[in-house]
Nucleic acid binder design. Structure first.
Lengths: 345, 345
DNA sequence: AGGTCATTTGGGAGCGCTCCCAGACGTGAT
DNA sequence: ATCACGTCTGGGAGCGCTCCCAAATGACCT
């Protein structure tokens, strides 16, 4: 063995220093990109690192520096089912991509009950991550406030309401819904109904508002008989569609606040003998696999999910960096949606 | 005494010891459940921990003990699209559930290119996790062998071939396919075709084998004209279905090695004027959202995905514990599948 | 010549744990 | 009383880093 004291273990910073003929501090400076190191020394250290195959020990670094180089992605368990596809994996993909050239680690935490939430709360209170990404929290979730309180950098995906104690990244739900309904109206539909999400969800209210604005802007009558409440499930979509058909048999288009509800609605329309899109045009929201595989394929509003994941990381990293430097940069981000036209409308 | 005071910071083990009037070692023993601590002392320490709200510092523990209390879940990027639903989220759910009462952390790593794979290789070589869960590796992936080489505990989901250098958890693909085809034959179908996955994938070969065994067992003719090669995509399913229809127009059932291919097949059948299930019965594999939302809903073979995630963790933890104690317990696990009957067959 | 200042460097002092050894304190046998 | 042998317990010695202070160096001034 060319290096003394190496015997099988991973080389330490100390050994790199010895090998390069410099002090520990200098090696540390090179690794962390500190400015005041002469080029000559830097090169020597870098060669030593390469030759020894040195990789810093994360635990030691975390202990000494008091930071963990890790962020947590927190997902309420329910969401992994509801948003299974493509939301969940899309966000993860974006987050991971944006993290790839950082050397931050991604910790995944599913929270399926109160006990686990408390455990996670304790976890972050103990500062075992540098920041937290919170996926689709519910309106009554105390986590955002807790994080705000203990000064843990955090970013939300979506909003629970208009304002939030921590930064959020969201897509333009109102605008997306509006575009969808404008599209329907633009295709000559005159009696456009909507199936909404549960009204206690902000995202559902936004999509409903988008619908209303489009209807109003087109000068069509605002008719509550054309609005039915769903719950983002297929069964809810069925129920709502039956209500609509009963109340306004003459309707010629339906904007559904989710693809899954659109699938339910489509089934009811089929039973009722209405053809899609000939008799009734259908538009969904989410652009999920369900939309692509429906018959006919469903026009749907696509959220830039992967990009949202990336944006969340960017905002969080800014937040973490800002926190360190004492400044306080709250920056939200709202991304645009896109209407994907298929043959259902 | 620099110990008392420290306002604002998290309490340390040292402070707990002082508060309880014992030594550091004793507190450590209580926390780690070492046997030789008197009940009285244990109680006192536990009270001190509770009263101070002490949470061990993971970095310090990892540094001192040389283990990280974290495992990595590694997913090749391509898979996050292909298996997006429900495989990906199902595994995560199972893994997370099984990990919940451990205090292991779950590190998520997507690998989207060679550079990232090398980085991850370096990462595990530096022993920054205690174990690795590898999702659906490709046949030419060197990661399993690398992990084996450096002695890092690892578990695969699925197999690349018959044997593996590291333990795996898989579902009974052959049995599932067999059950699906038996089901078709049991419903009176006599000309059962199959659309396979790419033959270089072990899972595809298994499902094909299951098909063959069922056909043979039923005493039906083994006819290569009834076997068409797909690639697990919808378009591949379409192409294969057209081939089958051209070669054996009289077929009355098709077993597809994936739901997505079944969706493609279904579209072609519709164009060809064949009714499902009246003229042609259809069965898929995966029991994905696509299956539930097809028209008619698709009979499909369900894999116990969440349970597979749990099993992977159990095997990995055993592996890690075994490694520590010097024993070498290679234990694979193959879980049963279940046929979910819907109206397509 | 001496003084000042910026730049670069070495290494001590921890960070909060676990590991392990030696000591304290029983208990029972001699 | 002495010894042996068990069970508990305290605390020293690290783990591999970062932080920071002081020292060395050299450039430039007075």
């Amino acid at each position: 063995m060319t290096v003394s004291g190496r015997r099988g273990r991973r080389p330490t910073l100390e050994q790199v220093a010895a090998y390069a003929g410099v002090g520990r501090g200098t090696v540390s400076r090179v690794i962390n990109g500190a400015a005041n190191v002469s080029d000559q020394t830097r090169t020597a250290v870098q060669r030593a690192i390469a030759e020894l195959g040195y990789v810093p020990n994360r635990a030691a670094r975390a202990l000494a520096a008091g930071s963990t180089d890790a962020i947590a992605l927190v997902i309420p368990e329910a969401e992994t089912r509801l948003f299974a596809e493509p939301y969940f994996s899309g966000i993860i993909r974006g987050v991971s991509a944006e993290l790839a050239d950082t050397d931050m680690q991604l910790l995944l935490t599913l929270i399926r009950n109160l006990k686990e939430r408390d455990r996670f709360a304790q976890y972050v209170t103990a500062h075992r991550v540098d920041g937290v990404l919170l996926l689709s929290v519910h309106a009554d979730d105390p986590l955002p406030d807790l994080l705000q309180e203990i000064g843990m950098p955090a970013v939300l995906s979506g909003r629970r309401g208009g304002e939030e104690p921590v930064p959020y990244v969201d897509c333009d739900n109102t605008g997306g819904a509006q575009a969808a309904v404008e599209h329907l109206i633009g295709r000559g539909r005159r009696s456009v109904a909507t199936i909404t999400g549960p009204p206690d969800m902000y995202v559902a209210r936004c999509r409903l508002q988008g619908y209303r604005e489009a209807v109003r802007a087109a000068g069509l009558a605002e008719d509550d008989g054309l609005v039915a409440e769903g719950d983002f499930t297929e069964e809810g979509g069925r129920r709502a569609m039956r209500e609509l058909l009963a109340a306004r048999p003459e309707l010629d288009a339906v904007f559904c606040a989710s693809d899954v509800m659109a699938a339910g609605a489509r089934a009811v329309l089929r039973e009722a003998g209405r053809r899609v899109p000939d008799d009734v045009a259908l538009v969904g929201f989410d652009d999920s696999a369900v939309a692509r595989h429906m018959d006919p394929p469903l026009t749907s509003v696509r959220q830039p999910i992967e990009e949202m994941g990336r944006a969340m990381v960017r905002v969080l990293l800014e937040e973490i960096a800002g926190r360190k430097e004492g400044r306080d940069g709250r920056s939200n981000r709202v991304l645009a949606t896109e209407l994907v036209r298929r043959s259902s409308s």
